[in-house]
């Protein structure tokens, strides 16, 4: 088991962690989730048939782990809102995470993008991370998400448009960059 773990770690660990930290924007959560991914992978490694690549198989597990996390968060948040009847103020519960130092060091425009990424839908966020941050090909992205290539293209296009609109809304037409 250790040899399998070491092999996967060497090939994919930092990319997996990166995917999960951009999905969750929370260092501790990403650490817990990446651990959960390995547990699931090691438990089912013998069932991997090689129909897709090892890489896309691993990332599709990571994505499902992230979706489960969001689902639990969403239920928890709903319970809190229902309990306190906070209504609109509940929106303030979002994005309380600390900015990772790697992002804090970037220019303002990159920081704005990082901030708005959280407001995209889960599908859009997944496509953006895989395509622009992880540099996955269209085929790899489609395999990971279990979609057709045309759906990846469509979602990617919508995601960029949604991000642009969010940036315009949040920071104005010009952005804040000189």
């Amino acid at each position: 088991m250790k040899a399998v773990f070491q092999d996967l770690y060497k090939k994919y660990h930092q990319d997996l962690y990166q995917f999960l930290i951009y999905m969750t924007k929370d260092k501790e959560q990403a650490e817990d989730l990446v651990q959960e991914v390995y547990i699931k992978v090691l438990k089912s490694y013998h069932t991997f048939k090689g129909e897709s690549s090892e890489k896309t198989w691993l990332f599709s597990i990571a994505r499902h782990v992230a979706i489960d996390y969001f689902r639990k968060q969403s239920n928890k948040r709903k319970r809190i809102l229902d309990f306190f009847d906070w209504g609109e103020r509940g929106e303030q519960l979002e994005d309380q995470s600390i900015l990772p130092e790697e992002i804090a060091e970037q220019n303002e425009e990159v920081r704005q993008i990082y901030h708005c990424l959280d407001k995209c839908s889960l599908d859009q966020k997944s496509v953006i991370i895989l395509r622009y941050i992880q540099s996955f090909s269209l085929k790899e992205t489609a395999e990971t998400l279990g979609w057709s290539i045309s759906k990846v293209k469509t979602t990617q296009h919508r995601a960029i448009k949604a991000l642009r609109q969010l940036l315009q809304q949040e920071y104005g037409e010009e952005g804040n960059i000189q």
């Binding site: 250790k2 773990f5 070491q6 770690y9 660990h13 930092q14 962690y17 990166q18 930290i21 951009y22 990403a30 650490e31 990446v34 651990q35 390995y38 990772p100 790697e102 992002i103 060091e105 970037q106 425009e109 990159v110 704005q112 993008i113 990082y114 953006i128 622009y132 941050i133 960029i160 448009k161 991000l163 642009r164 940036l167 315009q168 920071y171 037409e173 010009e174 952005g175 960059i177 000189q178």
Partner: peptide, 30 residues
């Protein structure tokens, strides 16, 4: 110089998002 947000500018900045690494030792994670 200021310029408006357009798709190209969004895509350029997305590609600039940095790698964020897990600094925990491999053995600890295992």
């Amino acid at each position: 110089m200021k310029r408006g947000w357009n798709n190209q500018r969004v895509e350029e900045n997305l590609r600039k998002l940095p790698a964020i690494n897990d600094k925990r030792p491999e053995d600890q994670l295992y």
